[in-house]
Design a binder for these strands. Structure first.
Lengths: 329, 329
DNA sequence: AAATCTGCTGGTAACGTTAACGAAATGAAG
DNA sequence: CTTCATTTCGTTAACGTTACCAGCAGATTT
C-alpha cells in the first residue's frame, strides 16, 4: 500500500479510500491511484483490515459436511456456496467423515479463523463443545440432520413421515416382507427413517422382522452384500427400502428386477435403470440455500428464537416401487 | 492480553510466551499467567497474530473448481481436502461456474485471506492476474485443465490421446458416422478431446463432418436436444462420443439403444444402463490427491521447475461402445 | 575478582490497515 | 474582502500480537 501511495504520489489514506470506494477522492487522483494499484498488482490485506476494523465480519463462513464426494452433500454445498458468494463471503469447507473427533478438529479450525458462522451437517454425538464459540458470536445452523442438545436453526426434511409414506406405498402394492437397508443407525437421518419404517409396519399390522433390517452399510458394496444375504435367507423380502443414495447404488448392483425397491434420495439415471427406480426425493439445493439464508440472517442480527424449517419430500413413482409382491415366493 | 498481563503482574510479552507454550518462562510465573488467562477467559486473537507473524503459513489453501455439484469435481475436491486435512490445513472452496470474472473474484478472496496456496481448475482465459500473488509467495497448482501462459505444476490426463483411442475403438467396430457432443469448446479439456476426435478421424481416413459436432452443451437437457437433432438429420450418426459426464447423462435420455456410445468420464450406474455404457475413465481422486501433494511440496519449499503430471485413463468396455454400425442405416 | 554464561523477563517497534481529526484549496455568499 | 461551507487530502494513532534486543539476576568459569 505504501508502494502504491508513493507511485501515485498520494498518502496511504487516499489509497485506502480508493480501494474501499469511499467518497471524497478527486476523480483524477482516483484514476492515478487505480493505475498504480494495477501496475503493482496491489491487493488489500484482509488480515490487517480485519484487525483494524474490530467487531467487523470476516466474510467467511464454515461448511461442514459428512463427505463432499456424496452427490447429496455436493449439491447441498454448492447451493450454500452460491448464496455465500452472492453475499460476498467465502466458504471454508471440511468433511467430518462421520467422525466426531474429526468434526471437532474441523470446527476448531473454523472458529480459530474467526468465521462469522457455520453450517453443519452434524455427526452423532454431543455438540456442547460449540457453546463457548456460540457465546462469543459465532452463529451455527444445522442442516439435513438435527444436533441433539444444540438449540439452533435447523433445516431438515421429515424423514420419518417420508419413509412411512414410502413403506405404505409398498404395502399398498401387496408387500409384507419389506427390508430396510441403511447406513449407520447412529446417523440422525437414518434413525428417523428407520423409525418411519417401523411405524409404517405397525400401522399395516405387519410384525417387524429384525432379520429384514440391515444397518451400518457405509459403501455400495456393503449394501450389495447385504442384499445377497437377505435374498439367500428363507422367506426373503419382496421389497427393499434403500436408506440413502449410496445404499441404493449398492442394492441395484445385485437386486433382481422382480424385487420391488424404493430409494431415499433421488439420483441421476434413476429413470434409466430397468425397472426405473421409485424414490423419495428431497431437494439438496433447497436445503443448502435455506440453511445459508438462515445463517446470514443470524449473522446480520436476527435474534429470534431458533426455528426448524422442514422442507417437503416427494415420492416419485417410476416403476420399481410399484412392482407387485410375488405371491407365495 | 493487556488485562491478563496486568492481572498476573507481568508484561504482555510473557503472556504471549505462555500462550504459545514457548520455553523460557519460570514455572511459577507461567502458572500465575495461566490462572489469569482462565480467570479472564482470554483467547489469542488469530487475526493479530497472523498479521504480526508475516511470512508464516496460514495453514489455509484455496480450492477453485468449476462447480462442486459436478460428481467429478466433488470427488476431486474431497480428495484434495483429505490431503489438506492430514497436513493440518483447511480449505477455502469456491466455484467459478465457468466464468472468468467470477473466478477472479474467488481467487481475490483467497489471496486477500492469505492462503498459502491454491489448486485451480482454471476456466478459459488469461491468468496473468495471478502473477503478482505468485510473486509474493502464493503457490498455484492447476488440475484437470491447463492454464495457458501460467507456468505452474499441473495435473492432467491425456485427454487427446484418450479420445483418440475411444474413437479408434468405435472405428474398429465399423463406425464411420461418429458424433462428438461436448460442453463449451473454450474449456481446455473439451478442446483437447475435440482435437483427439479430429485426429482419430483423420487417422482412419474419415472426413470430418462438422454437422456431427455439437458444442456448448452446458446441461443434460442441452445434450438430449442435440441428440434428437442429430438423429433427425439425414445420414445420422451410428455412434456418439459424449465429451463429459453431464453430456453423457443427457445423451442417455434420448439415445436409442442401438446407437453406439462412449462417454468421457465414468459415472455411477453406468453398468446398470442397457446397454451398459463404455467409458473413458479417469480418476478424480488421484488427480486431487496428486495436485494437493504438489501444492504442499511447493508450500514447503520445493523450488524445482514446474512439472506436469499426466495421469492415466482407461477405456472400460461395457457394451455401448462395442455395438456394431448398422449397415445402410 | 572479573568475566562469561544461562535463564528469565521487559521495552520497543513493527505487521498493514483504517478511524478520527485536521489542513489546505476551492468556491459561494454576504 | 471577508466568512463559511465543501471538497479533497494528509497526519497520527491505534487494532492485538510477536520479533528483536536489552537487561538483570544468579551460577559458573577463568
Amino acid at each position: 500500500m505504501k508502494d502504491v501511495a508513493r507511485l501515485a504520489g498520494v498518502s496511504t489514506m487516499t489509497v485506502s479510500r480508493v480501494v474501499n470506494g469511499e467518497a471524497g477522492v478527486g476523480p483524477e487522483t482516483a484514476a492515478r491511484v487505480e493505475r498504480a494499484i494495477r501496475g503493482l498488482g496491489y491487493q488489500r490485506d484482509a488480515v490487517a483490515r480485519q484487525l483494524r476494523r474490530k467487531g467487523q465480519l470476516t466474510q467467511t463462513i464454515g461448511l461442514l459436511v459428512d463427505n463432499v464426494a456424496d452427490p447429496f452433500m455436493a449439491a447441498f454445498a454448492s447451493a450454500a456456496e452460491d448464496v455465500a458468494r452472492q453475499r460476498g463471503n467465502v466458504v471454508l469447507i471440511g468433511s467430518s467423515r462421520d467422525d466426531l473427533r474429526r468434526e471437532r478438529e474441523v470446527i476448531a479450525a473454523f472458529t480459530s479463523r474467526r468465521v462469522d458462522g457455520m453450517i453443519l451437517i452434524p455427526v452423532e454425538g454431543s455438540h456442547r463443545f460449540l457453546l463457548p464459540s456460540m457465546a462469543t458470536g459465532t452463529h451455527v445452523v444445522c442442516a439435513d440432520r438435527r444436533a441433539p442438545g444444540l438449540d439452533v436453526d435447523t433445516v431438515i426434511v421429515d424423514n420419518r413421515d417420508a419413509v412411512r409414506e414410502a413403506v405404505g406405498h409398498l404395502v399398498a402394492h401387496g408387500h409384507r416382507r419389506i427390508a430396510f437397508l441403511g447406513d449407520r443407525k447412529e446417523i440422525w437421518t437414518l434413525a428417523e427413517r428407520r423409525t418411519g419404517y417401523t411405524e409404517a409396519l405397525a400401522e399395516a399390522g405387519i410384525p417387524l422382522d429384525p432379520g429384514l433390517v440391515r444397518h451400518g452399510l457405509r459403501v455400495a458394496s456393503d449394501a450389495a452384500a447385504a442384499v445377497t444375504g437377505l435374498l439367500a435367507a428363507p422367506d426373503p423380502p419382496t421389497a427393499v427400502l434403500a436408506g440413502n443414495d449410496i445404499v441404493a447404488v449398492g442394492v441395484l448392483e445385485t437386486l433382481p428386477p422382480a424385487v420391488a425397491m424404493i430409494a431415499f434420495g433421488d439420483f441421476v439415471l434413476a429413470d434409466r435403470i430397468s425397472p426405473p427406480v421409485t424414490v423419495v426425493s428431497q431437494d439438496p439445493v433447497a436445503i443448502g440455500t435455506t440453511a445459508a439464508h438462515l445463517l446470514f440472517a443470524r449473522i446480520h442480527g436476527d435474534t429470534s428464537p431458533p426455528r426448524t424449517v422442514t422442507l417437503p419430500t416427494r415420492l416419485i413413482t417410476r416403476g420399481s416401487g410399484e412392482l407387485p409382491a410375488r405371491v407365495g415366493a
